[in-house]
Amino acid sequence: MIPESLATFYALLALVAPGLMFQVVSERSRPSSEQSAFREVSVVATSSLIFTTTSVLILGAFSRIRPSWFVDLPKWVSDGSVYASNNLWLVAKSVGLEVGIAVGLAALAAWILGKRSTASKAPIAKTSVWYQALKADKPEDKASWVLAELLDGTRVWGYVHYFTIEDCGNDRDISFKGPGLTVQRGGKKSRPVREDYYKYFVVSAGQVRFLKVAHEKKKS
């Protein structure tokens, strides 16, 4: 039998590490949608299984070229603790390489998927509409310029400073900044005023009638 502690440690790494890495890197490029605990565990386990299997196949191919560099899996299974004790460094190196390759593949896959635009592939997605319009669909060399009209008729023009990612209904905010931060109070008949003193203008989502978004060249 394979030593229980080593087998448990390896199983834990192989089942958790690649899937967790895939989720962490994915969530950096876009916010995650709300999921049940069972679904999150299933996603982690399934993605880990895919990347672990791929990693084992890669190492299997290399072991045919350099068999002395890797464990002899059939011998390890048949001899168990005797083989592991006699080849401890080889076992540790092989396990480390397998997990490392699996984690690397998971990070690479998540990064590649995050770079793909969702606008043409998935126009309807379970994500924040604000995030999609203000961030996800914005080219990297552009900035989001927004016109926000509030319920009382006030209009605000400015670049997006920050906004609440979570879709919490009206319990979220968006802040605007310059250059060019402009506020028009009292409806369309009043004169727009350029804000030269105040740096940011923060608005609650509950006060927003609509947003108009353009992607302009970044300005300092």
Rank of each mutant, 00 (worst) to 15 (best):
W130P: 00
W130T: 04
W130S: 08
W130F: 11
Y131T: 15
L134I: 13
K135G: 01
K135M: 10
A136H: 13
A136F: 13
D137P: 03
K138H: 13
P139W: 11
D141K: 04
D141H: 09
K142V: 04
K142L: 01
K142E: 12
K142D: 11
A143I: 03
A143T: 11
A143V: 12
S144T: 15
S144H: 00
W145G: 03
V146L: 14
V146E: 05
L147R: 10
L147P: 01
L147K: 10
A148Q: 06
A148S: 02
A148E: 05
E149S: 10
E149P: 01
L151W: 07
L151T: 08
D152Q: 05
D152I: 03
D152H: 12
G153K: 14
G153I: 09
T154L: 01
T154W: 02
T154I: 07
T154M: 02
R155S: 02
G158A: 00
V160P: 01
H161W: 14
H161V: 06
Y162M: 03
F163I: 15
F163M: 00
T164L: 04
T164Q: 05
C168S: 08
C168H: 12
G169F: 12
G169K: 11
G169L: 11
N170I: 10
D171G: 04
D171F: 14
D173A: 15
S175I: 13
S175G: 06
F176R: 07
F176H: 07
F176Y: 14
P179G: 04
P179E: 01
P179K: 11
G180T: 03
G180D: 04
L181V: 01
T182R: 13
V183N: 08
Q184H: 05
Q184E: 08
G187S: 05
G187A: 04
G187Y: 04
G187V: 07
K188F: 11
S190A: 06
S190D: 06
R191C: 00
V193H: 09
V193N: 04
V193F: 05
R194K: 10
R194C: 00
D196Y: 14
Y197S: 05
Y197V: 09
Y198W: 00
Y198M: 01
Y198Q: 11
